[in-house]
Amino acid sequence: MEIHIRNLEFSFSGSPSAGKREAISESTPFRLSIPKMELTSGSHHAWVGPSGSGKTTGLRLIAGILQPQTCDSLRIGSQELNQMPSRELRLFRAQRLGLVFQDFKLLEYLNVEENILLPTRLSKSKYSVSELRERVVHLLDRVGLKNKKHRPVTQLSQGEQQRVAICRALLLRPQLVLADEPTGNLDPTSKTRIMNLLRQECSEIKSTLLVVTHDHALLEGMDSVTDFSDFYAQRQEGKSI
């Protein structure tokens, strides 16, 4: 699924990273401005840039969680997100997108399998129960957690937790996978492993992958890399950009 952005602007009086709960400067107003961006279907992209440069905000805009103040076009595949009502946005998110977060966002009270199947609990899916179960087994097999299907997620290492989160994102074969600092909390060996895994899996289901990272070591093999500092401007005292 390709991504097509024209003249997108989003400004906020707080921190761009507020959604991540890791704000560097809570009260700093900021503005994100993307004049043009094109990502082709099935390709793998990375967004880099310093912390607080608006990468996460960008992801959230693409995911339809946030809405830009002005935008000529924000098109994902054939759908123009900019004009979509919130209910459809939610369905779009549930059925076409896979989301991977830096802090995994697994539910502690569910076990590995239940966490992976969580998206099917939140909205209807076109797959049957047996298909879904098979898919879970397949994914767990791919990420090497087949024998931990019934483990509580709290008993897993961080790397394992992220692998579970990736399985959850890929469960419904999304056409676009958005990963926000997927390796941010991991040790160096896990980092590469997780990144490779993500790219392999996305290739297998031919989905477009967009990774936000500030770890340049992970950029190898990406089809394109965008530096986000180009789009970001911090409002300094009295100085407008």
Binding site: R87, L99, K105, L122
Partner: peptide, 16 residues
């Protein structure tokens, strides 16, 4: 709240 946000982001309806 964080858990609820996650559910929302993954695609749960507001009423869920």
């Amino acid at each position: 709240q964080k858990e609820f946000d996650t559910l929302h982001q993954i695609g749960s309806p507001g009423s869920f």
